[in-house]
Amino acid sequence: MKKIKIILSLLIIVIAIGFLIAKKDGGYSATDVLENANFTVENPSITIHTVDTDKEDIYTRIKIPEETQKRLLQAFQNAKFDKATINPVDYDYRITISLNTGYTMYLVSEKRSLTVNRTEENYTMVNDNDFFSILEKVTK
Rank of each mutant, 00 (worst) to 15 (best):
Ala22Cys: 02
Asn36Pro: 07
Pro44Ala: 09
Gly27Ala: 11
Leu34Phe: 11
Ala22Thr: 06
Ile13Pro: 02
Ala16Lys: 03
Gly26Ile: 10
Ile17Cys: 14
Tyr28Cys: 06
Leu11His: 00
Glu35Gln: 12
Asn43Ile: 01
Asn36Ser: 14
Val41Ile: 14
Val41Glu: 07
Ala37His: 03
Phe19Asp: 04
Ala16Met: 02
Leu11Ile: 04
Tyr28Ser: 05
Ile13Gly: 12
Ile21Glu: 06
Tyr28Trp: 14
Ile17His: 04
Ile12His: 08
Asn36His: 14
Phe19Ser: 12
Asn38Ser: 12
Ser29Cys: 06
Ile12Val: 15
Ile13Asn: 11
Ile15Trp: 03
Leu34Ser: 08
Val14Glu: 03
Glu35Ile: 10
Gly26Leu: 05
Leu34Arg: 06
Asp32His: 08
Gly18Met: 07
Gly26Trp: 02
Thr40Phe: 03
Ser45Ile: 04
Gly27Leu: 11
Gly27Asp: 15
Leu34Trp: 05
Asn36Val: 04
Phe19Thr: 11
Ile17Gly: 06
Leu20Trp: 07
Gly18Cys: 03
Ile17Gln: 00
Val33Pro: 13
Phe39Asp: 12
Tyr28Arg: 10
Val33Lys: 10
Ile17Leu: 15
Ile12Asp: 07
Val41Tyr: 10
Ala37Arg: 10
Glu42Leu: 10
Ile15Tyr: 00
Pro44Gln: 07
Leu11Glu: 00
Ile21Lys: 01
Ala30Gln: 06
Ala16His: 06
Thr31Ser: 15
Tyr28Gln: 08
Ser29Leu: 13
Leu34Val: 01
Ile21Ser: 08
Ile15Ala: 09
Leu20Met: 15
Ile21Tyr: 15
Phe19Met: 04
Asn43Val: 03
Asp25His: 05
Thr31Gln: 09
Gly18Glu: 05
Asn43Glu: 11
Leu11Ser: 12
Val14Pro: 00
Asp25Met: 00
Gly18Gln: 09
Glu35Gly: 13
Ile13Arg: 11
Tyr28His: 10
Asn38Pro: 09
Tyr28Asp: 03
Gly26Tyr: 04
Ala30Trp: 01
Asn38Trp: 01
Lys24Tyr: 13
Ser45Ala: 15
Gly18Tyr: 02
Ser29Trp: 01
Gly26Cys: 02
Ile15Leu: 14
Asn43Asp: 12
Phe39Ile: 12
Ile17Asp: 03
Thr31Ala: 12
Ala37Lys: 02
Phe39Leu: 13
Ile15Gln: 00
Leu34Tyr: 06
Asp32Ser: 10
Val14Gln: 07
Phe39Val: 15
Ala22Glu: 01
Ala30Leu: 03
Tyr28Ile: 11
Phe39Gly: 14
Leu34Pro: 05
Gly26Ser: 10
Asn36Cys: 08
Tyr28Phe: 14
Ile15Asn: 02
Phe39Pro: 11
Ala37Ser: 13
Ser45Thr: 15
Asp32Gln: 03
Gly26His: 02
Tyr28Thr: 04
Ser29His: 13
